[in-house]
Amino acid sequence: MNIYIQIAYLVASILFIIGIKKMGKTKEARSGNQLSSLGMLIAVLATVVQVEAVSLVEILICVVIGSAIGLFIAFKIEMTQMPEMVALFNGFGGLGSLAVALSYYWLNSQELNANIDAITGTSTALSIFIGGLTFTGSIIAFLKLNGKISGKPITFGGQHLINLILLLLVIVASVFAVMYQADSTYVFALVALALLLGILTVLPIGGADMPVVISLLNSYSGMAACATGFVLNNNVLIVSGALVGASGIILTQIMCKAMNRSLINVLLGGFGQTVSTDGG
């Protein structure tokens, strides 16, 4: 890879780090956000110069469509709708990571008939799993805050056992998807399981706890981006993904403390119902 592109990625990573740091201080928060958006612009431009001229038009069309939708939503919404919008954007990011990993898997296993090695395969499965979970989880959080789904915890018997079984199936599907790449059944099973788990893990959590859940899902989408970085062997994805993943976990912890709740309590959902009406 070109040395200038690597330097551009390095500069972008530094801007993300300074940006996050500044966003923790009241006076510098806005400039921090602008620095981090500048970092993103540099990273994207450095990537665009690498692409083949034939793909450039399609890429530009996609970016224009995405920007238009993003700007439209961002300017249209009321200030009170902010948390649910963060959830929605987060869901899109998660699905994006899933699609990138699936695209890579499909290209190599089905179109090029090339074998994906075990390490890359594991990263691909992780990216698909975390990305899918983040997507449906965020959509449920969005719908709950929106009032389209009841904000009350939706619980049913044996849900923790069902989630555990699904998680085991995820591992099985991942292993099979890496071992038998010619058969695409397993990778699609993995996608379906990840999407289902996202729904089932967020449904039992009450509306008052949603900000904490969104923060956690935000951390997940960072991890998904990080896993995608391992798939593509791309440093800037790993650095930014890890930054968001780790800082998201800490932020989730801080938010839990501010609400006088423990993270486990929030995640186990229904059990904490009475506490959430008292504290939240």
């Binding site: 966003m23 993103m40 990537t47 987060n90 800037v236 930014s240």
Partner: peptide, 13 residues
């Protein structure tokens, strides 16, 4: 803001 950073997956896309 950190959610926007996780959109770095755009580079991968």
């Amino acid at each position: 803001g950190s959610n926007a950073i996780s959109g770095i997956t755009m580079v991968g896309a």
